[in-house]
């Protein structure tokens, strides 16, 4: 039975290592690149290579930076007294797209998960505490997911941050927009009740 040449198979394997790319998608991507103009593959290769060269974690917050600091830390108009702690750099983009927040960020690089062997040492928690000591923010918002891992990370961080006299808050959780009460479990409903607001 005929197979793809070794170099082609290696290309498929490389795509498969990417998140959310299954065997069929990897094959389709490889076929597309090899059948398209060579310039397209070249451009992709150069874009990946350049991104790897120039992008690095911001030494202050951990978000993507091209210069010395990321665009947010370098922006003097941001409110330096309110910070938002997020798990991933992509969460910064989500928060910025949502608008309404003009403070600074701190990217942890994940969430506490003993199952995946992610403990406090694997996250940017020490750098967060150092940064708090140096800059003394007034409030830190924990913008972590409401699942077990996000909850664990929030509950772990809150007392550590409070020790520095900083106000700690969390994003409100509860009933998703457009969803019915009958599908909310008791814990979620509890959060929603706790975080209720006057209308």
């Amino acid at each position: 039975m005929a197979e793809y040449p070794p170099a082609f198979q290696e290309l498929i394997r490389a795509f498969r290592r990417l998140p959310a790319v299954g065997p069929r998608s990897a094959e389709r991507l490889a076929l597309h690149l090899l059948s398209a103009e060579p310039a397209q593959s070249q451009r992709l290769a150069e874009a990946i290579s350049r991104a790897r060269e120039v992008i690095h974690p911001c030494p202050r917050c951990g978000f993507f930076a091209e210069g010395e600091l990321c665009a947010i830390c370098a922006d003097s108009s941001r409110d330096t007294k309110v910070w938002c702690v997020v798990a991933q750099s992509s969460d910064v983009i989500s928060m910025e797209k949502a608008g309404g927040f003009s403070g600074l960020y701190h990217v942890l690089g994940g969430r506490l998960s003993p199952l995946e062997k992610i403990g406090p040492e694997q996250l940017a928690i020490a750098s967060l505490l150092r940064r708090i000591e140096e800059s003394a923010p007034a409030e830190i918002i924990l913008a972590l997911s409401a699942d077990v891992e996000g909850e664990t990370t929030s509950l772990y961080l809150a007392p550590l941050i409070k020790k520095h006299g900083v106000k700690v808050s969390r994003l409100a959780t509860g009933i998703p927009a457009g969803s019915g009460l009958e599908f909310a479990d008791r814990v979620t409903l509890g959060y929603a009740l706790t975080g209720r607001r006057e209308v």
Binding site: S113, P114, L115, V148, F183, D185, R186, V187
Partner: peptide, 20 residues
């Protein structure tokens, strides 16, 4: 009660994490 599914799943996940 459909909401029990989410509660049981959260419990199972928390249990796995604590066992780990």
């Amino acid at each position: 009660d459909p909401s029990y599914v989410a509660l049981a799943q959260r419990y199972a996940r928390a249990l796995k994490q604590r066992n780990a």
